[in-house]
Amino acid sequence: MAAFTEAAHAVAHEPHDEVKHVRMNRLGLWLFFASDGLVFALLLSARFYMNGTDTAPDVKQWLGLIITSVLLISSYTAYRGETALHHGNVAHGRLMLMLTILLGVGFFAGVVMEWSIAEFTVSEGYGTSFFSMTGMHAAHVASGVLLLFLAWRKAGKGYYDGGGLKAYGVSGVVMYWHFVDVVWVFFYPALYLIK
């Protein structure tokens, strides 16, 4: 019995099995992105349906550019963190994940600041679009920060030591963070730049 258990354990941990497992996880994550992306696409289309290409003249361009830059930089630090952990460089990976978390918090704070100084309300046409789109996106940023923090903690406990496929957990979280960035790539011009 013990021999059978040992054999089953060995088969379950064959490299090929691990590769297959990671591949399925990756596919599942992309299916999630597709479904979640549809929600954001609907919000984006609703924005144009309700307001055409009109943008509030008093939207804070400087703030929009700053938070966009912060989110883009956080994508880079997330990539560096993922890469470092994949190569087994845990200390650098954790540092980059923490930087990403701080940048994410900074982005969230910028959105909250925008909400607090906005000169339009949620009941106005543009305001409805603005608050629903930034609100939904900020909720994803908040959950992304939480997931990054969990990955940072797990990295500290040695879960990703050795890198390679063992670090896929970090890749999944970082991919989610990039997805949040991709959404903002479309939201930023739609909410701030068109006129």
């Binding site: 970082v174 790539v185 011009p189 068109i194």
Partner: peptide, 26 residues
């Protein structure tokens, strides 16, 4: 702006999110 957004999204999806791995494998 739409064209630029598509190019930016493509860069992130292909190089940061490693989309080709879905069909190329690990």
């Amino acid at each position: 702006l739409a064209a630029i957004a598509v190019v930016k999204a493509w860069l992130i999806v292909m190089y940061f999110m490693h989309l080709p791995l879905v069909w190329q494998g690990e």
